[in-house]
Design a protein around this nucleic acid. Sequence first.
DNA 1: ATCACCACGTA
DNA 2: CGTACGTGGTGATA
Length: 886
Amino acid sequence: MTDSAKPTLLVVDGHSLAYRAFFALPVDNFTTKDGQHTNGIYGFLSMFVNLVKAEQPTHLAVAFDTSRHSFRTDQYAEYKANRSESPAEFKGQIPLLQECLAAMNVPVLTQEGIEADDILATLATQGAAQGFDVLVCSGDRDTIQLVTDDVTLLYPSVQGVSQLKRYTPDAVVEKYGLPPANYPDIAALVGETSDNLPGVPKVGEKTAVKWITQWGSLDALLDNADKITGVVGGNLREHLDDVRRNRSLNALLRDVDLGIGPADLAVQPIDAQAVRDIFARLEFRTLLPRVFDAVGVDAETAAASAAPAVAAPVPTELDAPGLTAWLAAAGETEVAVTVTIDGGMPARIGLATADAAVESRWSEETAAALGPWLESESPKVLADAKPQVKALRRAGVRLRGLVFDPILAGWLLRPSFPDKRLGDLVDRYLDEKLPEADPTQLVPETEGATPGQLSWYILRVTEAMRGELPASVAAVLSDIELPTLDTLADMELAGVAVSHEKLSGFSAELGARADAVAQLAYAEIGREVNLGSPKQLQEVLFEQLELPKTRKTKTGYSTDAAVLADLQESNPHPFLDLLLQHREATKLRQIIESLDTAIGNDRAIGADGRIHTTYVQTGSQTGRLSSTDPNLQNIPIRNEESRRIRAAFEVGEGYDTLLTADYSQIEMRIMAHLSGDAGLIEAFNSGEDLHRFVGARVFGVDPADVTPAMRTKVKAMSYGLVYGLSAFGLSKQLRIEQSEAKLLMTEYFARFGAVRDYLRSSVAQARIDGYTETIFGRRRPFPDLASPNRVLRENAERAALNAPIQGSAADIMKIALFRIHDELRRRELRSRILLQIHDELVVEVAPGEWDAVEQIVHDRMGDAAELSVPLDVQIGRGENWDVAGH
DNA sequence: ATCACCACGTA
DNA sequence: CGTACGTGGTGATA
């Protein structure tokens, strides 16, 4: 039992315990979606938080080995030489575990040439001398020698890392028959297989203890070795040097110069935000509350632990004249604005400057007082501005002067785990807790922040974030994202007209076909199964029909379309084709149904015969938009039948026609620009079809002699390049031998070598910087480029190779998007942008405006960026999206 | 109800 | 063993 008056020092051998956890926990249950194994990290942290909670140490450190090399291997090259290389799946976990500990503000100690246990021994010795109760936690038996009245060893049992056995001096005597200080003597005689230290043959623990007890010490025993009788006596005499060597090596260093001592290891409050971040990356969910619990902070208040929160001002409720006066006083200072929304319309509005907050109900009078200021260039900050901008527009107010949106800024800073709510940003950048009402309570204990208070927080978060925004990222925010936000609000409000009649007719047709095909399929196999269930299909295909097993998935064997097509080729069966037909019909029908229910589904607008998607501006890691509710960026186009869906997207009433505009090969053009490859640049400047031009070069023929097969091959190669395609992937896609794919790549790079050089150097630069950058300065971090896990690292390499290309294309499209929007408005044209599908725009053109609109769209897309190759824009026109898209 | 997984639509 | 997304069904969990 520890004396509660004494401070408690807990020192842990991180490496050995994580290694035990690695083997104790099934790796399959502890792997992130990217493929990072986390079982060792999880097991260690799980044990560690239990330990901290149970022991309540006042001082704490975790030690790690630096490498296999140490002063012991210098003395004896065979030391631990029998140990096999630790698995790669484990190695990669140590740096991540150290990151977790750093986030928890737990000191991580390492020393070149010194093993973790020597660090433990040094700290334990110093701690005991300085009046600490010391707890040593290690999986290495040599640490038994450290046990004294002041030092207790916690040793993992064979059952697992969570069961720790306490070794006090009494417990050591009970188990080994000798006091802790003599344990190394026994170990030296017996030997330690795991350290590759052979002992005296035929001498086990029993004999060793007997000898030491008899002679009092190892030295005395060795001095009197000639007095030992029998075979073991002879063995001892023959292995005296081994025993001396073992004893020398198993003595832990107690005087390592660590530069710090036990007193420097006082337990620190954890960095709750950092813990959340690293746990999110490792996909640990249940561990988070346990960590907060162990350190005495509950998860909800953890964020507020460090800094004392400044109380938000109590906002003053103002009427219309009050608002006018307040705004006049605010002048041109930056004001944060929060609009609450009810039924799509503004309900309340809160305004804040650095030292004051006011708010008001939205009414005709207050709107009239606020309108001119909201529509002025006076600088404003809104968090997640788009829905608020939309609500204001519905109320007839066009917000201008938006200079910052912390949600967008947060996404630009960390696109992989964007903070979605203001509360997340308050946690991260202010280290405070945003007051939020508990939605589960009818009468919440804590009131949620009011709009005025929210605005006050927004302003403070903004100030904190500006300090962290690199200039190039700040420029992306103000020059690209904020103007885009404004445009997207109008696009979402406009919506796109979709014909319910066309859709419902087609849906019924497909439904009837799906049913008929299903009946035929059932007949083929003699029973009814759920054709939508991969699990049931596996039974049919691989058990009943005994078709060859296909690509493995996590839960069995794949039944996807590519696999079924392969099966149809090798083992033709009518069921396969029927299944494919059924899949196609049901998939199309499902898309149609979801579109149909989305028509006029926007509560705020009512049924207007149009679909209003939501563009998620923070929806990608590369800078692209995403589209939800419904997703209008994945409407089918590939085959004739699916185009009937596009035909249902029509020009709306009061408008004349739809215009589609798309960039042709924008990513390859960006590649040409970034790589500066003379051949590729020439290809785009020549006016020749890109793939024909490239094909001619690669195959050494005239452009006119490039066959369709050649064109297909170089086209696949060109597109694949942007994604980091391998020879294996290329051969699979083109269904050619790997050797041929390899040859194709060789020939391609022989002609377009600068492309390869660029791709390589861009990944290399990302490895140095830790992030990639688009032409316009948008960044994307890639921590996994440094991972020792090959799969993880190579995935990161491909994504890093793609990010500047896809991201630059997204930047260019956004620039074109808002410039078109702005010019249409400036010239007071009624025509409006409806949709953005990454490299395509759909515009609704008002009567008499075609020529002007076509010109604007073409030119603004064409001159959105100045590259070393032209940006080619294809324009289409028609009464519906299908026709216009041709 | 919520989650993971599979499958599949787009650029 | 090619990047970036969102949706919907199934089947296993709670």
